[in-house]
Nucleic acid binder design. Structure first.
Lengths: 345, 345
DNA sequence: ACTGGCACTTGCGCCTGGCGAGTGCCAAAG
DNA sequence: CTTTGGCACTCGCCAGGCGCAAGTGCCAGT
């Protein structure tokens, strides 16, 4: 209970916890005191370990599935392990190169996202979740207004992350080419380089700079643009992959795998799982995911984007019994590469 | 063996097969002779049914999992059932309305596809697969060429199915507005209304109609368009949903569910599963799916599109032990509505 | 051609006992 | 006070045995 002064025995107890987590992650089976001293150089006898285990269990860090079984880490135990007993382990250089070359082959934003999901799933052997770059967090790179046949006009926006969004607007009358190019250039000046929410405000001001006769047209175009800028649907797009890795969960489909599959089909749940933007990989274990009905699962997530501005989230979902250091490394690495990839276009 | 003259007993045997399929689909358990006469008005005793069953088994239409169990239809049995013993059953009008209203809310092509997957999965309680409208099978509705900053040009294509594809082209020099609009109008005339493969040919001819000095520019644009028109990647896009319904498969994750999940992540496999374009819902059972490693699964698929031109495929994947008439009805209905939806845009 | 009867097969659920892994406690030693 | 060996105890797991129930195939009779 006295957390301030670290007793020698306290040190070993934590070492025991680490050993339990590592062994359990590897073997997927409750780990007993004998196996522990055999696999690790702890320098003490099983009996001593048992005493330590009793304390760890009292503190709620480990538990036994049933009386005559070994110990298993609790969510609280994993938490402590992640916070104080582990450090993100570096990826091997083949792994780094694999990520890099695989992502480099992407031809557009959709492709980047899809490839990220795949590479993340393969790297971690878990379910990978990647959110598409947020519209509201990127800036406007280009605005285009183009006459189609009749009174229809095509409005195109290109964002800093390389996404291209377009809408077709039905006008009341056919606009002249001169007016259109005028509209385009004034919209460009107002919006380019702005974040999307601010761009919406600037665009609203542009309407007033036109002659009253032209305002209906300009208003239609601006309204459309504003819709594009604040389209929540595209902000919520998420790609999922590696569902076959769910085998790593329990063997019982209905109680452990099915709810996960169901959750993975709900965008809302996915976004909640990814959580708040954080630069470094964040781990949320069990209830910390904020999602009920997914016991025994943990999420490792991170924001990706440029150094100044986070674009969106990505991460993995797996059993709490996972290789945290490795997963955090993979999530971090993929986030970095994806961010870099989307920084240029 | 004499297929020509239908004996009365032959009739009853088929009736028995139908009863077996229907009961097995409903109960998921091997069906015995006694249960059969109790649940259906067959007017004969269990012993007679047993004789019929023996014949059906000899013909390879049913089988028993083990000696003391009831009978289960074989793939061949399901095949016969689908071909000769069942007819597509009409959807209830609430179901029809559900499809219609749900699809009507879609705002663009992506949305239509996503909603179709969802509605199809819910309707059938199976895994739903919907291919995005094929580019190569649609026609060109509009071509746009727009100057961006510097020597960059945005090329936009809108297809008859409402898809909008765009590319950015880097030119060697900044083109004049006049030239660009000239290019645009000639490309439009050449391509609009054509199917994409033919449009590619027509566009190639357009290059020659320009002055030699302008040809490099026109060539760049045309090349880009040709790439867009024949982009296999977008032709192969597929959406999947309802994976949680895999519960209806076996209980054993590793042997029956995992391979399916793996297959569902491979675009190539998905496209193979959907099969060749057919207007009416087609059923492929077991090996007929042409995909190994998916025993016990059947696919119901159909093309969707306008009456003249199929746009792409959609369908469901489920255990061979499925409600074929209902599934075929659902697939057919969704295909019709989606086709209609994408016919206008 | 159909039926009732009967012997036979066999999977499944249930119980049982033995085995082994792992624990907790304790008394003794460092 | 910590560590250790010893020991009794608790359970989950597995194999074997048993009875049950379902369902079949065959045969003799109508």
């Amino acid at each position: 209970m006295s957390e301030e002064r670290r007793l020698p025995s306290e040190d070993r107890r934590l070492e025991v916890l680490r050993a339990i987590v590592e062994d359990y992650v590897e073997t997927q089976e409750p780990v007993g005191s004998r196996a522990l001293v055999e696999r690790h150089q702890l320098g003490v006898s099983p009996a001593t370990i048992r005493n330590d285990m009793a304390v760890l269990e009292e503190e709620g860090l480990i538990a036994q599935p049933h009386t005559s079984a070994g110990r298993v880490p609790t969510d609280k135990g994993y938490r402590l392990f992640v916070d104080r007993l582990s450090q993100v382990k570096a990826l091997t250089s083949p792994e780094r190169r694999a990520i890099e070359t695989f992502l480099a082959g992407a031809v557009d934003v959709d492709d980047v996202v899809q490839r990220s999901v795949k590479v993340l799933a393969q790297l971690t052997n878990q379910v990978a979740i990647v959110q598409y770059p947020s519209l509201t967090r990127s800036t406007v790179r280009h605005v285009e207004v183009v006459a189609l046949e009749g009174a229809r006009v095509l409005v195109v926006v290109i964002t800093s992350s390389g996404r291209v969004e377009q809408r077709i607007v039905e006008l009341e009358s056919t606009p002249s080419d001169g007016l259109l190019s005028d509209v385009r250039s004034r919209l460009m000046t107002a919006a380019v380089g702005q974040r999307l929410p601010e761009a919406s405000l600037r665009l609203a001001d542009v309407i007033g700079t036109f002659a009253p006769a032209d305002r209906p047209l300009v208003t239609s175009v601006v309204t459309t643009l504003t819709h594009v800028f604040s389209d929540e649907r595209s902000d919520e797009r998420v790609a999922v992959g590696g569902t076959a890795n769910l085998a790593r969960f329990g063997r019982d489909f209905d109680t452990s795998i099915r709810p996960v599959l169901e959750a993975l089909e709900e965008q809302v749940v996915l976004l909640k799982l990814l959580g708040e933007a954080t630069t470094d990989p964040t781990v949320r274990i069990g209830l910390e995911t904020g999602t009920e009905g997914l016991p025994g699962t943990a999420v490792v997530s991170s924001a990706y984007g440029s150094s100044e501005q986070a674009l969106a989230m990505l991460g993995t979902l797996g059993p709490t019994r996972m290789d945290y250091p490795g997963t955090m490394a993979a999530v971090g690495a993929v986030a970095r590469y994806v961010g870099r990839q989307l920084a240029d276009g």
